[in-house]
Amino acid sequence: MSKNLVLIGFMGVGKGTIARALMKETGLVGVDCDDLIESMENRKVKAIFEAEGEEYFRALEKKTAKWLEKSVKNTLISTGGGFYKVKNLHKIGKVIYLKSSFEGILERIKSSANSEKKLAKRPLLSDMNKAKALFDERDPLYKEKADIIINVENKSIDEIIKNILQEIK
């Protein structure tokens, strides 16, 4: 495969978890956009949001997207929930939307071993009504951007990986 795979989806859907499992299965190298931004800024995403606001963070995502397009090949890229908005998304690679219901995502987070930490690091999940409205707004946009849609709800990681591998062959 000579193209990047770009995982998109709502925060907490499991993009990082799926990326790590897919890396093991395929031997691809992986990068996480939020990790790249945190390294670039030398601070956590939550701290960036609190100090500079969402607009500043989205500008960092655009900068990251430009770098990915120019510099990264044959890589699995896990994105933040709002990364789908970058204009060059399809120039970066094949876009895979990991889809779940809002309730399914909350259940996934709550059932994880470090659920408190996972909720705390997602500033946009601090208000559940706003988060649900954001999910409802983004879901059709994720579908629109996706080359491949993988339903991850109530599926094991192995099932999800198998579905992705079938779709990308």
Results as ranks from 00 to 15, higher is better:
125 L>Q: 07
8 I>S: 01
14 G>K: 08
3 K>D: 09
110 K>G: 02
119 L>V: 10
152 V>E: 01
111 S>R: 13
116 E>T: 05
52 E>D: 15
125 L>F: 15
139 D>S: 11
10 F>K: 08
64 T>W: 00
168 I>P: 11
165 L>V: 10
132 K>A: 03
59 A>N: 13
141 L>K: 13
157 I>T: 14
29 V>G: 05
115 S>M: 08
9 G>E: 07
16 G>V: 07
106 L>P: 00
162 K>Q: 12
1 M>K: 10
57 F>G: 14
112 S>I: 04
141 L>G: 02
114 N>L: 01
130 K>T: 10
92 I>Y: 11
163 N>L: 13
29 V>S: 15
20 R>N: 11
118 K>Y: 02
15 K>Q: 00
7 L>G: 01
8 I>T: 00
122 R>T: 11
59 A>M: 09
105 I>D: 03
6 V>C: 05
154 N>T: 04
79 T>I: 06
168 I>G: 03
40 M>R: 14
99 K>C: 02
26 T>H: 10
91 K>L: 15
8 I>Y: 06
119 L>G: 06
74 N>I: 09
162 K>F: 10
1 M>S: 14
163 N>I: 03
152 V>P: 05
126 S>P: 01
1 M>G: 15
11 M>W: 06
118 K>H: 07
31 V>P: 00
12 G>V: 11
131 A>S: 09
72 V>E: 01
153 E>G: 12
130 K>C: 04
21 A>N: 04
35 D>R: 11
61 E>N: 12
99 K>N: 03
144 E>G: 01
38 E>G: 08
143 K>M: 11
127 D>G: 12
151 N>E: 15
153 E>H: 13
40 M>Q: 09
132 K>C: 06
127 D>Q: 12
22 L>F: 14
103 E>T: 13
152 V>F: 02
44 K>T: 10
104 G>L: 15
17 T>W: 03
73 K>C: 03
2 S>Y: 01
42 N>E: 07
142 Y>S: 03
19 A>K: 00
15 K>W: 04
40 M>L: 15
34 D>P: 00
65 A>D: 04
71 S>T: 14
149 I>D: 00
148 I>G: 04
120 A>E: 14
64 T>F: 02
130 K>V: 12
16 G>D: 01
21 A>D: 04
